[in-house]
Simulated assay, not measured.
Amino acid sequence: MSYFLSKAGLDFFIAFGVVIGGSMLAGLGSVFMLLPPAVTMLDTAARLKIWAIVAAIGGSIDPVRVIESNIAQGQLSPAAQQICFIIIAFLGAHLATELVRLICRGPA
């Protein structure tokens, strides 16, 4: 269980960091290019969300292969873990996207 929680936590924060970091750097770059930073940050956060999930779960198709091979062998536990890692990475990326949206739009 300890491995699961530590991997899940890392996946969450990696996905979160990819979206936040990418959006912040895009906003900084947009200032140098004389573009509106808030619009650039919002657009970048939305486009980076899927790539943040891919980066968090390993950056390749291997997790999908693990799911497929374990289900084919009748073992659901490793497949369920991989699906949980993907969901947790999505939550990290989504939370970061919502945080960027909140920051860029300001108080309501």
Rank of each mutant, 00 (worst) to 15 (best):
F4N: 05
F4E: 07
F4I: 11
F4D: 04
K7E: 11
K7D: 10
G9A: 08
F12G: 07
F12P: 06
F13I: 13
F13Q: 09
F16Q: 08
I20M: 15
G21P: 12
S23E: 12
M24I: 15
L25W: 13
L25K: 15
A26H: 05
S30K: 07
L35K: 12
A38L: 06
T40F: 03
L42W: 04
D43F: 10
A45Q: 04
A45V: 07
A46D: 12
A46R: 15
R47F: 10
R47M: 13
R47D: 11
R47Q: 14
I50R: 04
I50K: 03
A52P: 02
I53Q: 02
I53F: 03
V54M: 09
A55N: 06
A56Q: 04
A56W: 01
I57K: 02
I57T: 12
G58I: 01
G59W: 03
S60F: 01
S60T: 12
I61N: 03
I61V: 15
I61Y: 04
I61W: 04
P63N: 01
V64Q: 05
V64T: 08
V64D: 01
R65P: 00
I67S: 01
I67D: 00
E68L: 12
S69E: 13
S69D: 10
I71G: 01
I71E: 03
A72C: 04
Q73E: 09
Q75Y: 09
Q75E: 08
A79P: 00
Q81S: 07
Q81E: 05
Q81G: 01
I83D: 00
I83M: 14
C84M: 14
I86R: 00
I86H: 05
I88R: 03
A89Q: 01
A89C: 03
F90V: 11
L91S: 11
H94Q: 11
L95H: 04
L99P: 06
V100N: 04
R101S: 15
L102R: 13
L102T: 15
C104N: 08
C104A: 15
C104Y: 04
R105P: 03
G106Q: 12
